[in-house]
């Protein structure tokens, strides 16, 4: 089974000049935990998730402690989020490796990437690195449950 058979052909994305508020809205509208970031030519330059925005709105030390129970009060979170809501992505995003697959990669390879990197979804790009879709964890599991043939060595 190949990525092309399980991917969602949707190219919803944001740009580096979009605000964090726009990212949150886009995620909400599309019921996603994150969206790919593309340049003017639709080439993938990053990925931003709701989790990234949460981290950006928390004081740095809390991320180190890996717990929100240390937040002084909810107001701190709201205040920080309000400060950064209209900032463009490029000012907030920390450089991160983007995890991408191609249509012809196997579903098992995609599953492996998702598990190893602990991520919710993978970006699918064409030969020119342009966004052509995504594979989410749930879709991958569904596809594997429905269509995986154990005899298929290419998996």
């Amino acid at each position: 089974m190949k990525v092309r058979e399980i991917m969602t052909r949707d190219v919803t994305s944001v740009g580096l000049n979009d605000t964090l508020e726009r990212v949150v809205e886009t995620c909400a509208h599309h019921k996603r935990e994150g969206v790919p970031i593309v340049d003017d030519d639709n080439r993938v330059v990053g990925f931003i998730s709701a989790k990234d925005i949460m981290s950006a709105s928390l004081p740095g030390y809390l991320e180190m402690l890996q717990s929100t129970s240390f937040i002084p009060d909810t107001n701190t979170l709201v205040r920080n989020l309000t400060t950064i809501r209209s900032k463009p992505l490029k000012d907030v995003l920390r450089t991160k490796r983007v995890i991408k697959v191609k249509e012809d990669d196997t579903a098992l390879y995609a599953a492996d990437l998702i598990i190893k990197n602990g991520i919710n979804s993978l970006i699918v790009v064409d030969e020119q690195d342009r966004l052509i879709g995504i594979v989410s964890r749930v879709e991958l599991l569904l596809a594997l449950l429905e269509g995986f043939d154990p005899k298929d060595k290419n998996g």
Binding site: T8, R9, D10, V11, T12, T26, H29, H30, K31, G133
Partner: peptide, 21 residues
């Protein structure tokens, strides 16, 4: 809107969606 998009995706594998909500 979401139903339109989901139906398009489910039934038509050659269609890529790129809608503005």
């Amino acid at each position: 809107g979401r139903t339109i998009e989901e139906e398009l995706r489910r039934e038509h594998k050659n269609i890529t969606t790129n809608f503005t909500y």
